[in-house]
Nucleic acid binder design. Structure first.
Length: 150
DNA sequence: GCCAACGTTGGC
DNA sequence: GCCAACGTTGGC
């Protein structure tokens, strides 16, 4: 899951009550569909975009499966969607809880050099989705880099 | 600041 | 249903 740290960082998640937050504001159908596929207990990476360095910075866990994102119904919210009906909410969110900060953030640059990550969704050309799948192999590889710093 | 790679909107 | 125009994301 991508986030701009100036908006909401992994440290913000660590400081949140119960280290948990509702991952709201996703307004892309593909990304939304990935959210809806998430299961309680699924592990996720938190990735900082639009920062230097861009990197996977921590691990979190899905603690609540997809439910309607309340911000879509809030006219004062940036993510308000006047076309979404409460009877059939268009946008979903999940709740995630911080599990662990990586000792060494794994930079985008670093990930690009790792053979195991050649097919990683995050690294594919032109990908702008804020929620992306990670395979088991990719997950283990990034965690390893995050712990060893190499 | 630029621009590629999208996704969305709206005229037709 | 097509597609041009426009808006956004995010890496560089």
């Amino acid at each position: 899951m991508k986030t701009e740290p100036t908006t909401f960082s992994f440290d913000d998640l660590l400081r949140a009550p119960r280290k948990t937050t509702g991952w709201d504001g996703v307004r892309n159908y593909q990304a939304r569909n990935f959210l809806r596929e998430m299961k309680k207990g699924d592990t996720v990476f938190i990735y900082h975009s639009n920062t230097d360095p861009k990197a996977v910075v921590g691990i979190a866990e899905v603690v609540r499966e997809a439910y309607p994102d309340p911000t879509q119904f809030d006219p004062k919210d940036d993510h308000h969607d006047p076309d979404s009906s409460p009877d059939d909410p268009r946008w979903s969110q999940v709740d995630v809880r911080a599990v662990e900060k990586l000792a060494h953030p794994v930079s985008l640059e670093r990930m690009k050099t790792a053979r195991e990550l050649a097919g990683m969704a995050l690294l594919q050309r032109g990908n702008r989705l804020s929620v992306l799948p990670v395979s088991e192999v990719e997950f283990r590889a990034v965690v390893k880099m995050g712990k060893s710093g190499s």
